[in-house]
């Protein structure tokens, strides 16, 4: 079931759109913001709310790389793996992250604190290598700064 709050937020997006189903990505974003990820049940709920079939909603949900169709931890780490960051040492940063967290790309720490994901160019190439945690952008990130950054996220 969508909560009243979720429904209200989705309706706010729909107000700008001539067609209800055009709010599909907005609805997925709203649900994910509240629940961290989008479950099969949420896909069905969104479909019902927008007058679509669950398959239609899922075909959209699975297209977009930042809609999570599997559970993620409390904080998602998005590590840029594009060209400028790669030049500036992204592979070392990934090694470092994997060691610190004890997980590989696509995995979640056992305490559910972090999920480690790679992402295309974050538009912060002048601060490479860059990463995002939740809504916060960091760069350049190196061995000296990484621990201090991770500590901010419980």
């Amino acid at each position: 079931m969508l909560t009243e709050e979720e429904k209200t937020e989705i309706e706010e997006h729909l107000a700008a759109l001539p067609v209800r189903r055009s709010g599909c990505i907005d609805a997925l974003n709203v649900v994910q913001r509240h629940r961290r990820w989008v479950s099969d049940e949420s896909v069905r709920d969104i479909a019902a709310f927008l007058g679509m079939t669950p398959d239609e909603v899922d075909s959209v949900a699975t297209f977009y790389s930042l809609i999570f169709r599997r559970p993620v931890g409390r904080h998602a780490i998005l590590l840029c793996d594009s060209a400028s960051c790669w030049i500036m040492g992204q592979e070392n940063l990934l090694d470092l992250l994997e060691k610190r967290l004890g997980i590989g790309l696509g995995q979640t720490t056992e305490d559910d604190r972090f999920t480690l994901l790679s992402v295309a160019c974050l538009g912060a190439c002048d601060r490479a290598p860059a990463l995002m945690i939740d809504d916060d952008l960091y760069g350049p990130v190196g061995a000296e700064t990484l621990d201090g950054i991770l500590e901010r996220y419980e």
């Binding site: 060209a83 400028s84 295309a120 160019c121 538009g123 912060a124 190439c125 002048d126």
Partner: peptide, 9 residues
């Protein structure tokens, strides 16, 4: 999202 591009930001 073009890698290397950060001007519109």
């Amino acid at each position: 999202m073009e890698p290397g591009t950060f001007k519109d930001r």
